[in-house]
Design a protein around this nucleic acid. Structure first.
Lengths: 218, 218
DNA sequence: GTCATCATGTAAGCCGTTACATGATTGC
DNA sequence: GCAATCATGTAACGGCTTACATGATGAC
């Protein structure tokens, strides 16, 4: 579950673990990633050859500005201290071609439905800009199917609840009703995304044109 | 994660594993539970004394009607076969007082935020009818806080996205926007639940009355 | 010199998944 | 008799969590 967002973030630029965690926490913002899962994941990816550690070269030395304190003073102080070697413990990772392949595979594969389909889709959407339009559409279509199924099931459960003569629990009832609304809402959203994607694929206003066969990466 | 819904379903009546799975799959309908997690969970609960196996007594023998075939013919066939002992391998579980205590503890405890807060809340709501009103309100209030936080964070991320001069990825953008709407929507829903709960607690139309101190179980 | 933060890792444990093994019951 | 369904389990594996260990850097 972590591999995809890690590879996704490394797509832009090499990063080290600590920074990676911060970005995962905020950008993907919904769930806290722990170091205890991040570092093993990085080790795994490195073992597989999907990423490689680059040694902290010159330019890496002070990428973060101190949050307080005068810059000039800081620079002077740095000059006074043993100047050059610093931050050597940081291990930045760069994605390899193997990693890019793996990244695309993870984005495009259709895993068996699981408890966190929603999160999985969110992560995919967050990085699907790196895919060609067709692959992106495939992801969206699959999500559409998924949501349509969910809506269907929710509506059936709703009907079943109504038909039961049972005293009927208002909480379970409200839960299913809200679930139904949410599924419908999500479905609309995905439909909009799909429509936008199709629109972008065929910008000519022709109504019956063949769909553009293009597969450009945005 | 499975313990709560298992204990919740057993609150109503004793059930055996297979039947439990079916109900978990459909009633809690969103995610497929596997036997490989269900049976170990049952074993765990039994070890802890939260549930106990009851031997398949008389009444248990044919609780399910055959889906096809004539009932009379079926009964006759049963009489022809060695009549009495049947279905003996079924192991139904009954909840104990320990189990009920555990159930309430699971419902009321406030676990550290995790990836499946949403699911956890859904499960709680599905069974909160067994709680006194106050405890139910506590659950709802906690969920409210959670959602308010989420909305807040989503809105901050949204603002951050707007402020960035970056070319801005439309997919990540849409993801956060939709997340914001969903959080707001969920928040409204919980607010309605809270209002309904308060209403039910103080049915007198007095505007400044002291809140009813009652703790009745529905 | 000390505290907060940055930074990387390991270990134990939990719980879920898939796949496998087993066997009874019932319809046809 | 054979297949489908009912029914209960075990084993291997994976991955995430918490807690722990370690140490550098920089602000004051």
């Amino acid at each position: 579950m972590l591999e995809l967002p890690i590879l996704g973030l490394l797509q832009e630029e090499p990063l080290h673990g600590y920074e990676l965690k911060k970005r995962l926490d905020e950008t993907l913002g919904l769930w806290g990633v722990s170091f205890g899962s991040l570092y093993p994941a990085l080790a795994r990816l490195e073992r597989e050859g999907a990423i490689e550690a680059i040694d902290p070269v010159d330019g890496d030395r002070r990428p973060l500005f101190p949050t307080t304190g005068s810059l000039a003073g800081e620079a002077a102080a740095a000059r006074r201290r043993r100047v050059v070697v610093s931050r050597r413990r940081r291990k930045a990772y760069r994605i390899t071609s193997v990693g890019t392949a793996r990244f695309e595979q993870l984005l495009e594969e259709d895993p068996p439905p699981t408890a966190d389909d929603d999160r999985a889709f969110a992560v995919k959407l967050a990085f699907c800009r790196y895919l060609p339009r067709e692959a992106r559409l495939a992801i969206l279509e699959r999500r559409r199917t998924q949501l349509a199924d969910r809506l269907d099931r929710a509506q059936r459960v709703l009907r079943a609840q109504r038909d039961r003569r049972r005293p009927e629990d208002p909480y379970a009832r409200s839960l299913v009703e809200h679930g139904t609304r949410t599924a419908a809402h999500d479905l609309e959203w995905v439909d909009e995304l799909i429509a936008a994607e199709r629109e972008a694929a065929a910008p000519e206003s022709a109504s019956a044109g063949t769909p553009s066969p293009g597969g450009n990466t945005l």
